[in-house]
Nucleic acid binder design. Structure first.
Lengths: 258, 258
DNA sequence: AAGTGGTCTAGACCACTAT
DNA sequence: TAGTGGTCTAGACCACTTT
């Protein structure tokens, strides 16, 4: 059985190197994860107790605990007080899709540029007023941007900003014609938090035209509302992404190395 | 200025209650996050040093460190060795969408049921063979499931499983007609990890018919490949979700409480 | 009662950054 | 040199679970 071969062959390679630059807690976490990946411990199995691990690898209690906590954070094991630490089964529910991946993807292609297509004052209609907590007819700043990757349109962005002389102006927002500015939204330091939703949508005729795709076309729609430190909505907008230019990917379960 | 009012009024409410059931490190993390939310510390500001916090709140170094690490994990602050701990600015790149939210959503509606629409042996075509690491013509188990919520179709699932007498059979997979079975995929304990991708797509005619929506319709497509502990692909499949029944939501930035 | 994980202490030493 | 975060120790005490 392949599993047992691996178990026997590599049993003596699980150790902590105190001369390494990698911290002991990290080495221990990786070591345990590798043992699980190798089948030494299977889903449902109990790991050695913290006292055993402390003795076997000659580290202090806090170091063992930190290693275990790392594995808990990675959904590799779960702990039950009074019972022990157990290897988790594969579970789709632990999956998470990180926007950072998208950002890295775009940053890697050095050819990503942002064009400001439109910027003007518009009067809030009902939906804008509702999202931004304004009265209908109040002024807002409307921005429309197009992000190009490799000279091809990838996604575009619409945004409505509160326009109120009594509030600090979000000038940095209007100058956000760089990729960094689009993601590092709060460069003005007045925004506290945001609410995000992603949905699948059919592109409108205008969207398809700007992004140069044929209808009907599917798109990701990432909507955002940002709030300032007084909890007032300050920005409402959404990204529309060509589905052929964007895939969200992630892994779940036991990865060989982190 | 509203910010300063809050700052003055609540300054004396930031303290740690040693009689509380909430651990000190957690209280300290929440306390600091609340101060940031209240504007006591703004994005870019340096937090008090760990030595100061240790003295001010009368806790040990490890307790301070754990509180700080908690905030680092929550993307609230970032640390720089030799410099200090700084409040992070709002950053879209820190956002993550968790499938757990979807699972909870479906679990809450007690009326979610899974119907097995089809289950049979099919011969692997080129794309199936490639994904499952098989030769064209090898046998696979084909499953088709429909998940209903409130007596309405919400999404459906296709899956191809390796069918090989030499491998442990994934019997649990075939019996997965419960919601739990769909998400807690590895109930047979033979699956180690999975690769997931989400994309926006246009429904096929068959998909639209099964899910009872009019064409053209947008849909989330969640594709998965699962590997066993010998790193062999074992399951390839995908979920197709009605976009009006599924939205991925998340928050980013400084939340008032965790 | 024995064994488990969970919290916390009061330091030590190190690596890094600034002046 | 002084101050910062990063790691690690060697225990203590507690809460919980099983025998």
């Amino acid at each position: 059985m392949k599993k047992n071969e691996a178990k026997g062959a590599e049993e003596h390679t699980y150790h902590i190197d105190r001369k390494s630059y990698e911290p002991a807690y990290s080495q221990l976490a990786n070591l345990l994860r590798r043992q699980i990946a190798d089948g030494v411990f299977s889903p449902g199995d109990r790991l050695p107790s913290e006292a055993e691990l402390r003795e076997r690898y000659e580290v202090s209690p806090m170091t063992v605990r930190r290693a275990i906590n790392t594995l808990v954070d990675q959904n590799v094991v779960s702990t039950m007080q009074g019972l022990g630490t157990f290897v988790r089964r594969l579970d789709l529910g632990t999956a998470a899709f990180h926007l950072q991946n998208v950002q890295n993807l775009l940053s890697d292609t050095a050819s990503a540029t942002v064009n400001l297509l439109d910027a003007r004052i518009v009067s809030a209609d009902e939906s804008i007023a509702e999202r931004l907590g304004l009265a209908v007819g109040n002024n807002t700043i409307y921005l429309k941007r197009l992000l190009m990757v490799d000279d091809e349109p990838a996604f575009f962005h619409r945004e409505y900003l509160v326009y109120d002389p009594a509030r600090p102006i979000v000038e940095a927002e209007m100058e956000a014609t760089s990729l960094e500015g689009l993601f590092d939204i709060g460069s003005s330091n007045i925004l506290k938090r945001g609410e995000l939703t992603v949905e699948a949508a059919i592109m409108s005729e205008e969207e398809a035209h700007i992004l140069q795709v044929a209808l009907p076309a599917a798109a990701f729609r990432l909507e955002h509302v940002f709030f300032d430190f007084d909890e007032r909505p300050t920005s409402w907008g959404w990204f529309v992404c060509r589905s052929d230019r964007l895939k969200l990917t992630t892994n779940v379960g036991i990865e060989p190395e982190e």
